[in-house]
Design a protein around this nucleic acid. Structure first.
Lengths: 332, 332
DNA sequence: TTGTACGCGTTATCAG
DNA sequence: CTGATAACGCGTACAA
């Protein structure tokens, strides 16, 4: 009747090696030690199969080696790309990554930010899609460093990674103009979101610069395919554009399908472009012309900024901008 | 010159409330206490903005309230769906979710499993795509409960969630036979993976049952679109099938594009179907007929199994099977 | 019902 | 360079 073998701790290791726990800890955490000391401790550790306990280490060292990513919608491939970018950085830096879906819900986002007080992560990367005063206030006094992926007002002293969707949209519009299109329409997502607002602004500005007026602007209730399908059908009952810019790639796919339902060819009759350049843009038939907002790169950048700040909390707030890039394919 | 306000601990709260730390702890963790005691502690806690420290709690309680999901490839939407399923369960159970990409690499998977000894999570959900003896051995003696999403040999006493891709493939083949197709080909993924092996097996069996022989079988080097494109082109130089079953939806998208390059219409000239029924299957043109392997449901199931086991480690190992479901769309 | 006191496994400080 | 020891913040026997 033997009790299960107790999990080896640093004390066990030190005892077997015949040294103090302090020395054992030093050796194992890469401190200074004589070769002999080093050898004895390591041998004892491997002999016992010692593995450090992260909970104890976190408590004592006041760091978890974990980062959190609060994402609006894991169903959106653009955010998945962002997550991959983040993961690539955390992985090589020895951090673990925690994923939390917010559903784009402010209350959820607030609760994630508040939750930082629990100290279960050393930092947070968050992508809010609506910016409220409440959120800005919360961002100002977080219990752990935060990096925000969105355009924050300059007055908010928080690290953030921006993109320029206004410029991005203008790239598409110019491209469509160059191929002779004149009747522009937009199928956007909800305009009370940061991306939705910026994209419609960019669209109207770009069309205006060309001396034109949009023939239609429709907003889907969400940046999803299903919502896009409804809005796209509505849009097509109202007018017949020859160029349609969509708020993101999922909406563009919906638009293309709706056009086909109307017997219209893409890009023959109508040019269609999306935003985000998700992986599927290339796989789609026709393949989708899209503006890459470099989601992966933005994720990486945010992760690096966050790690930098964790390493040095007194750094001044940083704002980095990532430039959009037009990817021309078959649809426009 | 004031020092930054010290973070409130349970001691601070107890002191302000004029009670012992034990009482404070009891109230806050939902123990027994007189209404008066309860009130005083809570008031003190909110007054101070007290938030429990997870590291300390984890160390003391010997649980982290965290689960890990080791996924082969976050770029594959099927795994993203799985992740969403898992997240929905962890979220409502008060667990946090940690995501670790393995890239389908055995060494990575092993290291994740070994890493369990660090006790940074209470359990792990893993999706190995290759099963080796080394892996099976590691699975047998883990430092924390594991749930595996794949078909494990019955001899391995580990909770696992299975699917029946053999049955799944037969569903597609039958459907294609019913629409008069006879010249069957398969564009599979790597056959040294569990999914790859099962799917080719199912395909050959189903075709055989119909008294036919496949006109071609091609394996892509990976379950990705890019790899699929190469393999699809190769396949088409060799033969002209009128029905093509693909190892997953991404491969199917590649197949459809390759067919179009050859001037062939889907489904007019050739019927194409995929496996996994990812979200994009519906968005594609033509929309993709696919076998749903219920990734989301499998994720949920695995998460629930894992939580059950964490709650009761002495449970006998469970194996659950999720049935495939044919989703007929335009491509076949 | 409430309080005291200890231990969870580490790391860091400070003497030697 | 090494060792003894004090925290880190919390939960829970055990005693009152």
């Amino acid at each position: 009747m033997s009790s299960p073998p107790a999990r080896p701790t640093l004390i066990t290791v030190a005892r077997l090696a015949g040294v103090s726990v302090a020395s054992a800890s030093r050796v194992l955490t890469g401190g200074q030690a004589t070769p002999e000391m080093d050898r004895r401790v390591r041998e004892a550790a491997t002999a016992l199969g010692y593995v450090p306990d992260m909970a104890a280490r976190s408590l004592r060292a006041r760091r978890t080696s974990q980062l959190a990513f609060a994402v609006p919608d894991v169903g959106n491939p653009a955010y998945v790309a962002m997550m991959r970018g983040i993961e690539s950085v955390t992985r090589e830096s020895g951090y673990r990554l925690l994923v939390q879906s917010t559903g784009g819900d402010i209350a959820e986002e607030m609760s994630v930010i508040q939750g930082l007080g629990q100290r279960y992560v050393d930092g947070l990367i968050i992508v809010p899609i609506r910016i409220t005063d409440e959120l800005l206030r919360a961002l100002a006094v977080t219990a752990a460093p935060i990096a925000v992926i969105t355009s924050l007002p300059d007055s908010v002293p928080v690290d953030n990674v921006r993109t320029d969707s206004v410029l991005g949209v203008s790239l598409v519009v110019k491209h469509m103009l160059a191929s002779g299109r004149r009747a522009f329409a937009m199928l956007n997502g909800p305009t009370d979101t940061v991306p939705g607002a910026e994209r419609i602004r960019g669209f109207e500005a770009a069309v205006d610069v060309a001396g034109l007026r949009p023939v239609a602007v429709e907003s889907a209730s969400d940046f999803t395919y299903a919502a896009g399908l409804d809005a796209a059908r509505t849009l097509l009952t109202r007018c017949q554009p020859d160029a349609i810019v969509c708020g993101n790639d999922l909406l563009a796919f919906a638009m293309i399908r709706a056009l086909r339902e109307h017997g219209l060819d893409v890009p023959g009759d109508v040019a269609v472009a999306g935003i985000d350049d998700i992986d599927l843009a290339e796989m789609h038939l026709p393949s989708l012309t899209s503006v890459s907002l470099e989601s992966g790169a933005r994720g990486q950048l945010a992760a690096r900024m966050l790690l930098d700040r964790i390493g040095n909390p007194d750094l001044p707030p940083r704002r980095e901008k990532v430039l959009p890039r037009l990817v021309v394919r078959e649809s426009a």
